[in-house]
Structure formats: C-alpha cells, structure tokens
C-alpha cells in the first residue's frame, strides 16, 4: 500500500510537470501562429481590436499573460472565458461537452473489450479453423479501415437500408449506439488480435499443460488459467486505446452531430481561440495521464511480477 501511495504521489508530480510543459509549449506555439482570435473576413477597426484585446488581457506583456493565466488555472481551476464562444467560459464548455465525450468513450471501450476479448479467445481456442481465419481477417480489416469510413458504411446500412438507428444527434440510447460501435470497432479489432496472441502463448505454457493433464475441464482451464495471463497485453493496451477513442471521437462527433468536446478542439485551434484551445489541450493531457497511470497501477495489481516504479 505504501508502495502504491508513493508511486501515485510521484506520478502526480510528473503530471504537474507535464501539464506545465504542455502549457508552456502550447502558449508559445499559439502566439507564434499567424492570425489572432479577432481576425475575420470583415476587418475589425484598430480601435475595436484594442478594446477586444484588453477584454481578454491580450494587451498585457506576454510574460504577464503567461503567468496570470497559469496562476488562474492552478489556484482556481479557472481556464478563462472562451474568446470565440463569448457567452461561455472554458469551464462551462468543458462541463457541457465532457459528459457526452465520456459516455461515448465508455460505451465504445466496453463494447471494444467485450467483443475483442470474446473474439480473441474463440479464435485462439479454435486455432486454424474457419472461424479463426474469418475473425482474424475481419480484425485486420477493422484495424485498417478508418472510423469515418466505417461510420459512412454504418449509416448507409443501419440508417437507410435497415432503418434501426437515427441518422445523428444526441439524447437517446439509440443515438449513441452507432457512433459507439464505429468508435469501438478498430479498438475491438486490435484487442482481438492481442488476446489471441496472448492466449496462444499461455496455452503453450507448462502449467496449462499440467492443468489439462490433471483432467480439468477445458472450459475452466481456459477461463481460470489461460485468460488471466493472456489479458495482460490487453490491459497495457488500454492506455493507448483510451487515447485513440478520445481522439478518434473528433471525427465521429462531426459525422453524428454529437455535442462532445472533440469538435471544440478543432475549432479552438483554427479560430485561434487561445483560451479554449488551451483548456482542451490541458484537459486531454490530464485525461491521458490519469488513464495511463490507472492502467499501470492495475497492471501491477494483476501481475505480481510487475513492480511499480
């Protein structure tokens, strides 16, 4: 336990450092890019632009902007007012969009794990059969096809040809199913391949052979002795999987018109909404860091050979 809390504390320290580094790099990059939040096709008169810059503290010396904003984030978790969506603070934008993105990611991941592990186990147990081959071929396709292509196909199939799902939008369970499937499929495909490889490796281990030799039923050997070991690579893949689900949702949110935070990410960057872009970058940083830490911790708990360092 002491080991664990020490580890978490160290990781927390690293996270603060990472956040600071990401903040600094983003801050500098954003101000180096040509254009500014107030540029539009209709040129803003200089007097008005000065007023706007003052409103968002952009007229202060850069170093002052840098520290003021950082202090606000650290002491009050205040990410400021969105420059482009001016009726909203960045915190409000996150509060509205994050639950949507989170629901989508959770459903996609749960779907991916369930489908991926099942398919992996079946194809490893029935190695070399038609079922194995077809499932692994599907998995390769699943990894190769980008999710927006999959989304278009899925819409064609399940919205127009067999109308069971609505075309887009947010608010009912039916509306979230299709995007979650499209988002989870590539991850499921990858997990299936990882599970199959892990299963095959463990199946050839001596303790498994012993278990079979003792006459244990196949089912309990697979579930109790093979699967736990085979799932280790899957667990370690969950960190990157979360990342891919979160970033993959940027495209799907547009295709399915979902009110998540992904689309804000793109808009904040292209419209030079400094505060919103910063809020997005930092949120994703923290999120990915936390997810990776959780994965590492659970990895150590599942596999006694792994030490937290």
């Amino acid at each position: 336990m002491k080991e664990l809390s020490g580890y978490l504390l160290r990781r927390f320290g690293w996270m603060l450092f990472t956040v600071w580094a990401v903040y600094t790099v983003s801050f500098v990059l954003m101000r180096l890019v040509p254009g500014n939040p107030f540029s539009s096709e209709r040129t803003v008169p200089p007097a008005i632009e000065r007023q706007l810059r003052a409103r968002y503290n952009l007229d202060a010396p850069p170093i002052e902007q840098y520290t003021d904003y950082l202090v606000g984030i650290l002491t009050r978790f205040d990410l400021g007012v969105s420059i482009r969506l001016e009726d909203y603070t960045v915190n409000e934008v996150l509060a509205e969009g994050f639950p949507v993105s989170a629901s989508l990611a959770i459903l996609a991941l749960v779907f991916a794990i369930t489908l991926g592990v099942t398919a992996g186990v079946i194809s490893a147990v029935y190695r070399g059969t038609f079922a194995d081959l077809s499932m692994m071929a599907t998995a390769v396709l699943g990894i190769a096809i980008p999710n927006f292509v999959l989304a278009s196909l899925a819409i064609l199939l399940f919205v127009f040809m067999v109308p069971i799902f609505p075309a887009a939008g947010w608010g009912t369970l039916k509306q979230v199913m299709l995007p979650a499937l499209c988002l989870g499929s590539p991850v499921a495909a990858y997990i299936a391949r990882l599970t199959r490889a892990g299963m095959l490796e463990v199946l050839s281990k001596e303790h498994v052979r012993t278990a079979f030799a003792k006459g244990l039923p196949k089912r309990s050997v697979i579930l109790r002795h093979v699967l736990p070991g085979a799932l280790l690579p899957v667990v370690s893949y969950l960190g990157p999987a979360t990342a891919s689900v979160l970033t993959g949702s940027l495209v799907l949110e547009k295709i399915f018109a979902l009110p998540g935070i992904g689309s804000h990410f793109i808009y904040a960057a292209t419209q030079r909404d400094y505060t919103l872009a910063m809020g997005m970058v930092l949120t994703y940083t923290v999120l990915l860091f936390v997810m990776n830490t959780l994965v590492d911790v659970s990895y150590a708990i599942i596999d006694p050979r792994v030490k937290l360092e």
């Binding site: 919205v159 127009f160 609505p166 075309a167």
Partner: peptide, 10 residues
C-alpha cells in the same frame, strides 16, 4: 449529416 437527418425526418 444534415442531409441524412433531413431525409430521415430529424
């Protein structure tokens, strides 16, 4: 997306 929603009555 908008056209899909239009065609399906949303």
């Amino acid at each position: 997306t908008a056209l899909n929603m239009y065609e399906t009555g949303q």
